[in-house]
Design a binder for these strands. Structure first.
Lengths: 191, 191
DNA sequence: CGGGTAATGGCACTCGGTGCCAACGCTAAC
DNA sequence: GTTAGCGTTGGCACCGAGTGCCATTACCCG
């Protein structure tokens, strides 16, 4: 029950809309936090109560999605080979409802093509890697920060990002590209 | 021949020394550019003529080292399997003269454990990935920005970073860890 | 001794981000 | 209906990174 206290004047979703609009018209770097706050009719100080940084705007509810991936992995049948389970989880994690695709595309264009956001993404990806490393660790009976799980997590991330970049450039099928990248790597290893 | 004009008052190497000393005592984040400039006896404005950003200080001559790796890859015998060639190149790229190990360790501790530098590293790693992707592209007859080469580059980077993190924590043999991580991945793919 | 040249460093400015705090808007209890 | 308590707001002042501008400085050569 949100009983006492002044009501919140806006929401993350609303600020995201306003900000995306500005990003689309002026670009991310050329849009200042003041611009966003002004366009949303709030104070600059208030913006930072909704988002810890300007860099967080494009990320939506990433943590929430991570929880979803964690659960899916937990439900993965034990006889599925490790890398297959991870491949399926990644493809699944990135399954986007058709009507959400344009928005998702804009998110990822920002994140993957804006230098400041490319840099920042590393910090966000750390949580993603932890999920994978945790799973790989459990499956192989090692701590998540052992070399094996850690490597697998970094590799899985690399594959995913490569597939995403390809997706942005070619406008293909994201799930297919993720799958293809993941399987293609196995092939590369075989020679 | 640097004939005419005022002589440079310091050098990247000197600034690096001064800065590393401060980083070691106060940490990276708590050391301001003013601190470094003052300790080096130069103006703050001048600092930014030696380094484009504070984040660049720990990177030494990374671009130069990349050139080395490019050359080594070019010299790699054509019959060596692709992933083996890359593995060897990475191990080689990271072979450090014994007396340089402590410095290298401090560099990597900064880069891999300071959030701001973790983030920034992504931008620096892009050039590293390009070298690998270029090689993989030539070997497989694809453009470097095709899905295959791009994935291989991201994966190789992931493996290398994972091994580095392990190295920092366990103080083992870096070359061995890199090799192990790279081979271990192949094993993971086999199940 | 000049004249050309390149490095220096001060100044002012932008922008992201933070601590502090008074004012505000709301609910519930009296 | 007034008021106490509560959470939100947003202004202000501040910090630190990074940049454009420009006068000054130190150097080399003729």
């Amino acid at each position: 029950m949100p009983a006492a206290g002044r009501r919140r004047v806006t929401s993350r979703a609303e600020l995201e809309r306003v900000a995306f609009d500005l990003f689309g018209r002026q670009g991310f770097e050329r849009t200042t936090v003041d611009d966003i706050a002004a366009a949303a009719g709030i104070g600059r100080r208030t913006f930072f109560r909704y988002f810890p940084s300007k860099n967080d705007v494009p990320w939506g509810d990433f943590e929430g999605e991570l929880d979803r991936m964690r659960l899916r992995l937990k439900d993965s049948p034990a006889q599925t080979p490790l890398m297959d389970a991870i491949r399926v989880a990644i493809v699944d994690f990135n399954r986007i409802a058709p009507e959400q695709v344009p928005l998702h595309r804009r998110r990822m264009e920002l994140i993957l093509r804006t230098p400041a956001l490319q840099a920042y993404s590393t910090l966000r990806y750390a949580a993603w890697r932890e999920v994978i490393a945790g799973f790989a660790g459990e499956r192989t009976g090692q701590p998540p920060d052992a070399l094996g799980p850690r490597t697998i997590a970094y590799v899985a991330l690399g594959v995913a990002v490569a597939a995403y970049e390809q997706w942005l450039e070619t406008d293909g099928d994201l799930a297919g590209l993720l799958d293809q990248a993941m399987r293609g790597l196995a092939a590369a290893y075989r020679g």
